[in-house]
Every structure is written in structure tokens, then in C-alpha cells.
Amino acid sequence: MLRVLGTIFMSLAAVVVALPIVIVCSAALNGGRTMFFPPQDSTLARFGEFFISEPVWTRALTNSVIVAIGAATLSVLLAWPIAYRLWKTGSRASALLATLGSIPFAVPPIVFGVGLGFFWSFMGGLGTITAGIISHAVLFLALPLVTISIGLQAIDRAYLDAAATMGATETVTFRTIVLPQTLPYTISGFFFALVLSFNEFIVMFFVSASAFATVTLQIFNSLRNGYTPTMAVAAVAFIAVSIAVFSAVARWGDLPRLMGADQSRS
């Protein structure tokens, strides 16, 4: 009886979580310029508009991809030495550095966005894609920092000792043991940052200063004018990317462990 209740509860939760997404996605099939649910005059024309013919959307999509890939790469490159130092030395200074690096992710994005807006207007980068990439890299630095740290902690210290007794210096050990063993975690961190950067728009709103727009920012900017089915196409594309990325992480990385599940049980 209780088990049945549990199953019903979980299914209900799944339906409620999925419902708005399903509705948005199906709205992408609308033939007209207005959002209807259920969609009217079903067509795939809006997909063509979003991906190919409408310059506003194709430019925004290009910007989204550039910012997301750039920011994810940069945040991984920044997170690696911080996480490695923390793991290697465990010193207070490196712990402080890691904490400072996680602050942007912890404060309300609107506050950090306002701050970055001021920052870039002083630095002269306001409205450039580079500023957007760096801002997102900093904002999501905490993610690769956490996944890489989890990966480093998973390395048995005996591996390092074993490598040393076989003649490996710290550099060689890093290259032959540490790097290969933490690769899945590095990739996970990269993808977490990538997907979140893809979807973020508040910080981007302040940093872009309307000089450029990413897809979500473009939607945000045109919210006042109401939704169009082309925006729903963006939703379809984004949810597809998210599911693909996280499925890949689950397939090649240990997702339950990354999310903090107990390693010993399966």
C-alpha cells in the first residue's frame, strides 16, 4: 500500500516537473506567430527560423555557443591549479583561494551581475564577448572546482607512492596518474559549467550591456513583447543539449558519486 503511494507520488512529481517543459516544447510546433497549446497548424518551420533563417536567433545561438564553450574551458583551466594545490598541500591559503573562487556561484546572480557590470565598465570590456566569457567562467568556477576536487580525493594516495617507488617525479606522476584518473571529473565539471553558462542570462544581461545577446538573454529581452514559438524552439534545443550532456556524464562518469552518493553502496 505504502509502496503504491510512493510510486504514485514519484510519478506525480515527474509529471509536474516535466509538464511546463513538455508544453513549451510542443508550443514550438505552432504554425502561427503566437503560442498556443495545444499547437495549431503544426509545422517545423520555427526550427528553420531559429537555426537558419532568422539572423537575430542564429547570431544569439552562435554567441551562446562561443560563451558557453569559452567560459567552460576557462573555468576548468582556472579550477585545475586551485583544486590541485588544495589537494596537494591542504594549506589554509589554498582552501581560502578555493572558497573565494566559489563565492560568485553562492551570491544572488543579480548582485554579482550588477558588480560585474560595474567592473567591466571600469575595465573597459563592457559589452564584449570576452567579458561575457570571463564573467561566466568566474560565475561557474565553483562547479569544476567541486568536481575536480571530488576526482582528486578519489585517487588512492598509494597510487602516488607506487609511482614514486617506480621512479616517477611529481610531474611524471601528475601526467601519468593524476590527470588520467581525474579526466572524467574534469569533463563533468566542464559540462556542468557549459550547460549552466548556456542557460544563464541575468549576469549576461548586465555584462553584455545590450551590445550582444545570447539565446536566453534574447528571450529575456523580448519577454515584454510576449512569447513566440521560435523561443519555444530554443527551449527544445536547450533541453536536448542538457539531457545529452548529463546523460553523457552519467554514462562515462559516476553521476551518483558526483552528486554526493555514498560510494560503497550500489
Binding site: 516535466a18 542557460n199 528571450i219 529575456f220 536547450f238 542538457s242 553521476l255
Partner: peptide, 14 residues
């Protein structure tokens, strides 16, 4: 987890 991560990362606008 894949399902939840995909929805959690989905932009607020959607």
C-alpha cells in the same frame, strides 16, 4: 539525476 539536472539547468525563462 539526469532528468533533474536537465530541468535545474534549464533557463528560468523557459
Amino acid at each position: 539525476l539526469v532528468f533533474l539536472l536537465a530541468t535545474v539547468s534549464l533557463s528560468e525563462v523557459f
